[in-house]
């Protein structure tokens, strides 16, 4: 299953944008931000699923079983035991998903035409390069500003990358 999800993730966006363009046109979402909201899960869901599958499988099943023995239902064991333990993985997956969406280029380029709707990644390239003149000052400033949310998020959640939360949990 995880191999299949991984293979789905490997389909390049430079290929996927072609059928997706048709879907966006049918939904009358061309040149709207909704075109991106609807299509970004196409590459984010496989990525997040693949990432979390690997992380969740590293959480010992014994913990879940212990919770069931202690009176938890399946759902409450997931809620009370597994999800808190998986928090570093969820945070990491969220950060990477955000970074993927933030830096996505080809969908933003092809589905959006109007300058004031463009995402920063597409807008910087499309609007700040004119022929053989590159507006380097503006390009550099835009690249810096665009990188700030990513830097900020990674700085804030750096500690959650530490995935040793489960270490020793099942030992005597």
């Amino acid at each position: 299953m995880s191999t299949f999800i991984f293979i789905v993730y490997l389909v390049p966006t430079t290929l996927l944008f072609i059928p997706l363009a048709r879907i966006i046109a049918v939904l009358h979402l061309s040149n709207t931000l909704w075109s991106l909201i609807v299509t970004y899960p196409a590459f984010m869901v496989p990525f997040i699923t693949w990432m979390l599958t690997a992380y969740l499988s590293s959480i010992p099943r014994d913990l879940e079983e212990s919770a069931l023995v202690d009176g938890c239902t399946r759902l409450s064991a997931l809620w009370r035991i597994v999800l808190p333990l998986a928090r570093p993985g969820i945070v990491t997956a969220t950060l990477f998903a955000f970074t993927l969406a933030w830096s996505e280029f080809i969908y933003a380029l092809t589905f959006i035409s109007t300058t004031n709707l463009k995402t920063v990644t597409a807008g910087v390239v499309v609007d700040l390069i004119r022929g053989d003149i590159f507006y380097w000052g503006s390009l550099m400033a835009a690249a810096l500003v665009a990188s700030l949310p990513i830097v900020l998020l990674f700085s804030l959640f750096l500690d959650h990358y530490v995935s040793g939360l489960t270490a020793g949990a099942v030992k005597g």
Binding site: I18, A21, R22
Partner: peptide, 10 residues
């Protein structure tokens, strides 16, 4: 890329 997308989307 823009032309290709629009042609596919008709």
């Amino acid at each position: 890329a823009k032309l290709t997308a629009e042609e596919q989307a008709q």
